[in-house]
Amino acid sequence: MKAPKFSYVRAESVEHACKLLAEHGDEARILAGGQSLIPTLNMRLSRPALLIDINRLEHLAGAIFNGKEVRVGTLTRHADVMLSHMVAKYLPLVAEAIPHVAHVAVRNRGTFGGSVALADPAAEMPACLLALGGRLVLQSVRGTREVAAEDYFHGLYQTARAPDEMLIEALIPPQTSDERSSFKELSRRHGDFAVAGVAARARVKSGTISNVRLVYFGSEVKPTLAKTAMAAAEGKIWNDATAEAVSTALASDLDPMDNLLGKPATKLHWQRVLTQRALDDITSKAKAA
């Protein structure tokens, strides 16, 4: 199980990487952490002509708060997200999600940007990004643009990123002090990809929840904002009736995949259970605060 032949270039700068992408188009692949790319190479499931290694572009690593939003560089390793004080302080949802990402050795190498760029349907970071209303900065020789997370994830491993574009960073608005978030996922074994999961946030004021945002992953082809369910919860007291309404609404938001990890009906059921637990968690966190 050895990778097929390819060419390899270590990018000297973002501009260099973009130039190579422009020249080679979808024949080229950006090599970040490589935790998803290299398995597909070893299995000969992907055959890029060129790998553009961005691991030396260290300025693309790290999470900082610029006073307005948290900027997570594309090369920030999952392990560094996990240790980041900025993330802990401003993005508690991400902090809660990150221990679910794979295992220590993969977190040490795998990157935030790689996960977002790949858009694996079961990945945690894309779901968080969507839940937090983040934006993605894409660069190419044509220039730089920002894409809202809501517009970025198109389908199964499909994103708004053009073949000549490179993901540079994510810009994520900090969670406000009056909101609470919760991250719940089910996976067969710890660190496995989720069979179902929800990234949830809301404001809670005397039992009433507002600004509810529910993003589902694992079951869907892409991280999915459950707008009907969110509407069913918005401005309501979190109680059995609201839970029932949200649960019912969820059926119109989700279209779970049928695969080895479960039937669509099962996944919808799991997502409903996780929704209940996430909103219970959010309201109890609010009470505790």
């Binding site: 090599l31 490589g34 290299i38 070893n42 290694d53 050795a105 040490n108 190498r109």
Partner: peptide, 12 residues
């Protein structure tokens, strides 16, 4: 840092 040796290229 501990990493998967099979998920990194020697050239890296």
């Amino acid at each position: 840092k501990v990493v998967r040796g099979c998920l990194m290229l020697a050239v890296q």
